[in-house]
Simulated scan of single mutants.
Amino acid sequence: MAAELRRLRADAGLSREQVAEQTGVNEGTLYRIETARARPQRRTLIALLDLYSVGEPMRADLIELSRSADGQGWSRPYQWQLPGEYAVYISFEAEARAEHNYESLFIPGLLQTPEYSRAMSQGVLPAATEPEIDERVQARIERQKLLDGPEPLQLWAVVDEAAVRRVVGGRQVMAAQLEHVLAMMKRPNVTVQVIPFDAGAHPGMPGSFIFLEFRDEGDPELVYVDAQAGDMFLESEDDLRRYRTMFDHLRASALSPARSADLIASVKEGRLE
Rank of each mutant, 00 (worst) to 15 (best):
A98K: 11
A98C: 14
A98M: 08
A98D: 09
E99Y: 03
E99C: 07
E99M: 07
H100G: 07
H100M: 13
H100F: 12
H100W: 12
H100N: 12
H100C: 12
N101Q: 15
N101Y: 08
N101R: 15
N101P: 09
Y102S: 00
Y102Q: 00
Y102L: 01
Y102K: 00
E103R: 02
E103L: 01
S104R: 02
S104H: 02
S104W: 00
S104Y: 00
L105R: 07
L105Y: 10
L105I: 12
F106D: 01
F106E: 00
F106A: 03
F106N: 01
F106H: 00
I107G: 03
I107L: 11
I107F: 09
I107N: 05
I107C: 08
I107R: 01
P108T: 08
P108F: 10
P108D: 09
P108E: 07
G109E: 08
L110S: 03
L110Y: 01
L110N: 01
L110I: 06
L110T: 02
L111E: 00
L111F: 10
L111Q: 03
L111W: 04
L111K: 02
Q112T: 04
Q112N: 02
Q112D: 03
Q112I: 04
Q112S: 04
Q112A: 05
Q112C: 04
T113W: 00
P114K: 06
P114I: 09
P114T: 07
E115Y: 04
Y116M: 07
Y116E: 03
Y116G: 02
Y116V: 06
Y116N: 04
S117A: 15
S117M: 05
S117F: 02
S117T: 11
R118T: 06
R118G: 02
R118M: 04
R118Y: 04
R118C: 03
A119M: 09
A119G: 15
A119P: 05
A119I: 08
A119T: 10
A119H: 14
A119E: 12
M120S: 11
M120K: 05
S121Y: 12
S121R: 10
S121L: 15
S121M: 14
S121P: 06
S121G: 13
S121W: 11
Q122K: 10
Q122G: 07
Q122W: 04
Q122T: 11
Q122A: 12
G123D: 04
G123P: 01
V124Y: 05
V124G: 03
L125V: 03
L125D: 06
L125Q: 08
L125Y: 09
P126D: 14
P126M: 15
A127K: 09
A127H: 08
A127T: 09
A127M: 12
A127I: 05
A128N: 10
A128F: 13
A128P: 06
T129W: 07
T129V: 08
T129A: 12
T129S: 15
T129D: 09
T129C: 09
E130R: 07
E130I: 05
E130M: 06
E130T: 07
E130F: 05
P131D: 13
P131K: 14
P131L: 14
P131T: 14
P131M: 13
P131S: 15
E132K: 11
E132M: 14
E132H: 13
E132T: 14
I133R: 02
D134G: 06
D134C: 08
D134W: 06
D134T: 10
E135S: 15
E135C: 15
E135K: 15
R136W: 12
R136E: 12
R136K: 14
V137D: 01
V137C: 13
V137I: 15
V137R: 01
V137W: 01
V137A: 14
V137N: 01
